[in-house]
Design a protein around this nucleic acid. Structure first.
Length: 548
DNA sequence: CTAGGGTTAG
């Protein structure tokens, strides 16, 4: 008798391991059949094995949510765990049975669960909350929160953390903060989620305040702060945090691939080539794998820092290149006016079978615009649709208008804008206005500038452009009129424009108002020297001595 | 079971 029980247990355990080691659906279906037809399994064992099979089928990458749904349907009395598996599967797999937005399957299942009289447990709520988070359903999330309170799981740290994340993703920051403050058992994840919530909304100060108050930070805390500052337009501080991060002696805060990729993008924004090179060296020393993401970030960093050759060197050494990598290199060529190189690379990309995307064509079109190759631009604009079925987006039109307007082809540019299937944005009009200024087309420039101001009445730059149009036509009464209008509307520059450059590893900021650590007289002197050299070389200079 | 990443036009 005991012997038989032992054998049955062995059978159950063997099948269980088979399910666990299964790596494809064909095998899993065979095992499923076996479980259903095996005469030596008790009902309990069968139920256990089906649950296990359901788990792998629903959760793992090789599984099938469709099949899992069928398995689930045939389970007689699903218990909490069975429901949890399905709710989790629906909440984590966006492209499940139905990738239409027809319904929130996991929420429907939850309702069904309650109707069946099955109580949810501490695992049910994080899944449900995640579903709401992904769908940006803040209000549904609130009802789930209410249910969590009703069933007594609102004090669970996992439930609390998912709720903080839900509220901060959906923009309910005060709800997130309330949850955060009320949690007695908050952990590093609670703090990170709250910080990320503030960063997402651009409240860097509040994020920083929490960051400073944290006792224990991990690599995600640091990465979030670094990325938050980059995206908040403060890449210099991002680099400072990276520096501070390296002072921390803790296994939990060793920079990882995400840190490296983010810091490289900060260097790219700043033109901080020395920092960038140092990070490149750090990457090699660290033993971190230089994957396609980091490779792309390196290409972009070197490119934006002006080292086209170095960017190309990194690019050529990449063992694998995806669309993004090709696009980054093409854009680097475009940025520096290497139109031929950009198109040669595009050809190579095609031959090697990588698929260009809409951004690739932004690169190619801007290469044409920057090089004054209108005809090539027209051809490219046409090709992207015909040969690649990529419908031109508003930013493709902006590139094309840029190319046409620089060439002074205003009629064609306006015609293109009129024919746009979408509403032209400020970049499209801005490109047209740029051309008007270049070619002193006051009549059109006036109209376009007025239109831009109508679109964004508070944008300081458009008023300045408007003044420029008149100034170049010596219509100073009109300049005065616009200036008065600005004063009347209270249009002021929010933050003085500034640019940054790294010299010998130090990032200097400077603006027209000057800079504490840059000698402006020297800068102006050198710039004038360049202007003169370019004049001699035959570059065009306009009346304001601006070079274009 | 809960938290984080790279490319583009102006």
């Amino acid at each position: 008798m005991k012997e038989a029980q032992h054998l049955k247990n062995t059978l159950k355990n063997t099948i269980s391991s088979l399910v666990q080691e299964c790596r494809n659906m064909r095998e899993l279906k065979q095992i499923h059949t076996h479980i259903l037809t095996c005469p030596n399994l008790s009902n309990n064992d069968q139920h256990f094995l089906i649950t296990r099979l359901l788990y792998f089928c629903a959760i793992s990458d090789w599984g099938s949510l469709t099949y899992a749904a069928n398995v689930f349907r045939l389970i007689n009395n699903p218990n909490t765990s069975v429901y949890n598996i399905m709710i989790r599967a629906y909440a984590t797999k966006i492209n499940g049975v139905d990738n239409t937005n027809s319904s929130c399957r996991s929420l429907i299942l939850y309702k069904q669960m309650l109707c069946d009289g099955i109580a949810p447990d501490f695992l049910t709520f994080p899944f449900l909350v995640k579903e709401c988070t992904m769908r940006l359903e803040g209000d549904t999330g609130r009802s789930i929160h209410a249910h969590a309170i009703k069933f007594g799981f609102d004090n669970d740290v996992f439930v609390g953390n998912s709720l903080i994340s839900l509220y901060s993703v959906c923009g309910y920051l005060s709800c997130a903060r309330k949850m955060f403050d009320e949690m007695s058992n908050g952990d590093v994840i609670s703090w990170n989620s709250m910080i990320i919530g503030y960063l997402r909304r651009g409240e860097l100060g509040k994020a920083l305040e929490l960051f400073r108050r944290m006792k224990k930070r991990n690599v995600i805390t640091w990465n979030s702060i670094i990325v938050g500052f980059i995206q908040g337009g403060r890449p210099k501080e991002a680099l400072e945090f990276f520096h501070e991060m390296q002072m921390v002696r803790d296994e939990m805060v060793r920079p990882d691939k995400i840190t490296i990729a983010s810091v490289l993008s900060a260097c790219a924004y700043l033109g901080a080539i020395d920092h960038g090179k140092w990070v490149h060296g750090y990457l090699r020393r660290s033993g971190l794998e230089c994957d396609v993401v980091i490779g792309t970030a390196l290409v972009d960093m070197y490119g934006k820092c002006g080292c086209v050759e170095k960017a190309y060197e990194v690019f050529k050494d990449m063992p694998k290149r995806d669309t993004l990598a090709w696009t980054a290199m093409i854009s680097v060529f475009a940025l520096h006016g290497f139109c031929k190189e950009a198109f040669d690379l595009f050809e190579e990309m095609e031959t090697l079978g990588a698929k260009p995307n809409h951004v690739t064509f932004v690169g190619l079109l801007s290469a044409c615009a920057h090089s004054g190759l209108v005809e090539k631009g027209r051809w490219c604009f046409d090709m992207m649709r015909r040969a690649y079925s990529i419908e031109p987006q508003v930013y493709h039109y902006a590139c094309m208008v840029d190319a046409l307007a620089r060439a002074g082809l205003f009629g064609e540019a306006e015609e293109l804008i009129r024919g746009m299937p979408m509403e032209p944005d400020v970049f499209v009009w801005g490109a047209l206005l740029g051309g008007c200024q270049m070619h002193r087309n006051v009549e059109l420039g006036e109209r376009v500038a007025q239109h831009l101001i109508d679109l964004e009445p508070l944008n300081y730059a458009f008023y300045v452009n408007f003044c420029d149009v008149y100034a170049k036509a010596n219509r100073f009464d009109d300049v005065k009129r616009i200036r008065a209008l600005m004063k009347e509307k209270g249009i002021k520059k929010e933050v003085p424009g500034c640019s940054m450059i790294e010299v010998d590893g130090v990032v200097h900021e400077f603006s027209v108002r000057g800079s504490p650590d840059v000698l402006m007289e020297e800068v102006v002197c050198i710039l004038n020297g360049f202007s003169n050299m370019m004049k001699i070389e035959g570059f065009m200079l306009d009346h304001d001595r601006r070079i274009y």
